[in-house]
Every structure is written in structure tokens, then in C-alpha cells.
Design a protein around this nucleic acid. Structure first.
Length: 286
DNA sequence: AAGAGGCCCTGATAGC
DNA sequence: TGCTATCAGGGCCTCT
């Protein structure tokens, strides 16, 4: 489900409630996520106080006192649900009335004194990992590249990573070891804004095109965060504050609609690149 | 050794 | 209605 903007919204919506609170009980109903959840993880986490909630690319990081960490990835279909008293508060893009609390696929529950957080994930592509120290966490995270919102994500960084690459730019944007946080929706949107065809090879990109990728990857992600992320599928069930960026999609899921550029009459095309749907305007993107 | 494709899994929807 | 096929916001592993 979530790319960087959606995970950021989850982080923002949880932060105030959980920082400086202690996890009283950590219940694992199903250890079979993308990776098997470590046995006895509950013993490591129970009674620990959360001192910070961070987000790096698509990862949520719960930081505990004395520098230990719980890393969480929501995969394709993971959602967090904050429950206070009898009320069900929305924490991300799959928001429900309290009566619509998901009944299936609630795999993990974090119990606090006055509220709890439920991790729900039908497809189980998400995962959690625990780290005993900052250096262990940093080592794990060293596998991923900079996220576009990082100050250091600039021309020289991107050029250095693009140069000599034979892969197409769409797959490059999705490859988390060079750029992290972008997923299929935003890769399509960024390439449209940058006027670059998704199958262009990295090593064919001109400097000014690289500059456009920098500019629009930051711009698109920031705007998506501002709009509360994208709520696709399920959003007919949502109430109130669900994200609205899906209404702003320029090309994603817009096949056969007219290109949004004012002076272009072309229709949006859809092709598959490495088995993932790619939307673009063949007139505007070269 | 970089890059493409398969695979993990469930649910919604389209098409017959 | 009821079946089957296809697709979905990700990322690790394997094969070439």
C-alpha cells in the first residue's frame, strides 16, 4: 500500500499519541509476515517507552529508551489502526468507522495504558524487525539509497548513481538501493512531470532531465504528503480524513484519459515494465 | 555482476 | 450465480 507520503502520514498521525508512552503488552497473533517475526519479540519490547517515532523512506521506526528500535514496513497492504477507548481513530489511509474495525488479518497488537495500535495486513508483505542498537539499525538501513526529501538528494548524487546504468529509468526509480521511498504510483507521476519516457535508459539522460527528476521527485512527494497521501482501493469505506492525492493523479490509473497537459490531445498509455503497470503520455514524455 | 523476472499472499473486480 | 483469471501501493531471491 504505502509509499513514502503514506508512511509519513501514518507517522504524523501516530506520533503525538505514542511518544513518551510505554508499551504494556506486545501481542503477536501471526508471526508469518514477509519475514517470520522473531520469537519472544514481545519480551524485548514490553515495558519499553517510545521516545521517538521516525520515518525513513517507507520504513517506520519506533525508537525506545536506551537506543533500541523496532523497524516496521507496511508492504503492499499493511495498515495501522489506533484505538482509543471505544473510538477507532484513523492512522493512515484505510480509515474505518469504529464499527468497521477490520476483523481479519490483525496480526500484531501494541497495548498501551489507554489505547492500542493494531497492525493489519491481508497480504502479509509487511514486516517488523528489532534492533538492539543504533549501529545495527544503521547497518540495516545502509542498504537503501537517499530518499528524495533528503537535502543530500541532489544533482551530483543522482548523476553518480545513474551514470553507466543500462536499466530503464522507471525501474531505477523503484530500486530502493539508489533512491528510496518512491513506489509505483509516484514513479509514474514523477516521470510524467519530468517529461521522461519510462523506458528511457538511465545512461541516456541529459543533465537537464536529471535536474527535472530531482525537482519533481521532491515536489510530487511533498504535495502528496500535503494532501494526506493517496487512498486507492478501499477508499469508499473511508471516512473523514483519508488522503486525497488519488484525485490529483496525472497519469497513474488514468489509461485512455486525455493527457492533462493543456496543449496535448494524446491519451494516456499503459504498458507493463517488469510486470508493473506504467502510465505515460507518449507525446509529452520522450 | 547488473538487471529482469519470479515469487511470497489475499482480496476485489472483470469477464465468461 | 458462480467460476476463473488478472491485477494490486513491495522487495527479496534466483537466474542469466
Amino acid at each position: 500500500m504505502p509509499e513514502l507520503p503514506e508512511v509519513e502520514i501514518v507517522k504524523q498521525s501516530l506520533e503525538k499519541t505514542i511518544v513518551s508512552k510505554r508499551i504494556k503488552k506486545f501481542i503477536i497473533f501471526n508471526r508469518n509476515l514477509r519475514f517470520k517475526v522473531q520469537k519472544n519479540l514481545n519480551k524485548l519490547i514490553e515495558q519499553k517507552k517510545i521516545i521517538r517515532l521516525n520515518r525513513i523512506s517507507k520504513y517506520l521506526i519506533f525508537e525506545f529508551e536506551k537506543s533500541s528500535y523496532l523497524l516496521m514496513h507496511l508492504g503492499m497492504s499493511g495498515t495501522l489502526h489506533l484505538i482509543k477507548g471505544n473510538n477507532f481513530y484513523k492512522t493512515n489511509l484505510s480509515f474505518y468507522h469504529s464499527s468497521d474495525l477490520p476483523k481479519k488479518h490483525n496480526h500484531i497488537v501494541l497495548n498501551f495504558t489507554n489505547f492500542k495500535i493494531i497492525y493489519n495486513d491481508p497480504r502479509r508483505f509487511g514486516f517488523i524487525k528489532y534492533f538492539h542498537s543504533k549501529s545495527n539499525l544503521d547497518f540495516y538501513l545502509s542498504r537503501i539509497g537517499l530518499e528524495p526529501l533528503n537535502q543530500k538528494f541532489n544533482f551530483s548524487y543522482l548523476k553518480k548513481n545513474l551514470i553507466n546504468k543500462q536499466k530503464n529509468i522507471k525501474n531505477f526509480l523503484l530500486d530502493q538501493k539508489y533512491i528510496s521511498g518512491i513506489g509505483n504510483i509516484y514513479a509514474n507521476e514523477i516521470l510524467f512531470c519530468s517529461k521522461i519516457h519510462p523506458i528511457r535508459l538511465c545512461n541516456s539522460l541529459k543533465d537537464k532531465e536529471i535536474i527535472r527528476i530531482i525537482k519533481y521527485s521532491k515536489k510530487v512527494l511533498k504535495k502528496a504528503i500535503k494532501k494526506g497521501g493517496s487512498s486507492i482501493r478501499n477508499f469508499k469505506n473511508s471516512v473523514g480524513k483519508s488522503g486525497s492525492y488519488q484525485k490529483e493523479f496525472l497519469v497513474y490509473d488514468q489509461e485512455t484519459k486525455k493527457c492533462p497537459s493543456a496543449n496535448c490531445k494524446e491519451k494516456i498509455s499503459k504498458i507493463f515494465i517488469s510486470n508493473r503497470s506504467s502510465y505515460f503520455c507518449k507525446n509529452c514524455q520522450k
